[in-house]
Amino acid sequence: MLLDRPAWAFWLFAGPFVIGLGVFSYIPILWSVYLSFFEARNTVAPTEFVGLRNYAQMLTSPAFLDSLLTFTLFALFIVPTTFACSLALALLVNQARWAQPLLRSVYFLPAACSYVVAALIWKLSIFNGVRFGLANTVLGWFGGDTVAWLSVTDPPWYWLVLVTLRLWLQVGFYMLIFLAGLQRIPKVLYEAAYVDGARKGWTTLRHITLPQLRTTSAAVLLLNLVAAYQAFDEFYNVLGSDGAYPPYARPPLVFLYYTALGSGQDFGRGTAGAVILALLIAIVTLIQGRLLGFGRDRT
């Protein structure tokens, strides 16, 4: 039969996927690169070639640079805290002899929640800035004053809101990844260390557990950084109101969203921004992969 020939069978199996990938990944990306060299407001079939102007405008636009700064700040808060909390939690859960599956489920349950719902809870219940909010109620018990968490920029309390929200949503996920890593470490290594007189605790953690988790740690850091780079949902829902967004705390995707799809529909500059952001993340991924040997010893 014709379909038993490898070439025919291959395209029967992979054809739909390859066509889809072409239409919804390759063509859009190439088209975007094309659009980024044109003046393209409200149109995807532009005629006015402007060379690198869109790129130059993007790279010198204070708003764009500000969005990169916002991402950097956000990453500086969220990446180390997520890493430390999920590793610590995994180490604790790994020690739990009793009810371990139940605890694991509870810690992982926040992953069922969407960023929109989490934003709703954080914005309107925990950090709503009035007296009946949970954070202010708790502050009240200790005699603290009511804090308007989201409507002041000095001090920028909104960072606390955004960081704790994401922390809650993703710590359980990364904990699972660490837990899988911990359970792959051969028990023999610990037994050998105890025979050599090592004490349970800090010594084995430093000399066995952490080195053995190297690949997992690298994966968690990279996933976390890429996720922070793509932060959109919670910023849009926590800080945005009624179609408007404050001029501060715009991470790259929020900036891109308002440039390309806001009232301006500026596809030329929007796609130029997308190309720059894609290149940046590709470079960071490659560098981090090189530095940490990400995925090398995994099949």
Binding site: P6, A7, F10, A14, V18, L21, V23, F24, S25, Y26, I27, P28, I29, W31, S32, L35, V44, V226, Y229, Q230, F232, L253, L256, Y257, A260, L261, F267, G270, T271, G273, A274, L277, A278, I281, A282, T285
Partner: peptide, 30 residues
């Protein structure tokens, strides 16, 4: 087993380098 399977594979892996969220503008245009 197909001659160009490797080429197809690399074409797929290449798309993994670009985070999906960044391509929302291009895909929207499409």
């Amino acid at each position: 087993p197909y001659r160009h399977a490797d080429a197809v594979f690399y074409a797929i892996v290449a798309t993994l380098m670009i985070p999906a969220a960044v391509t929302f503008v291009p895909t929207f245009v499409m």
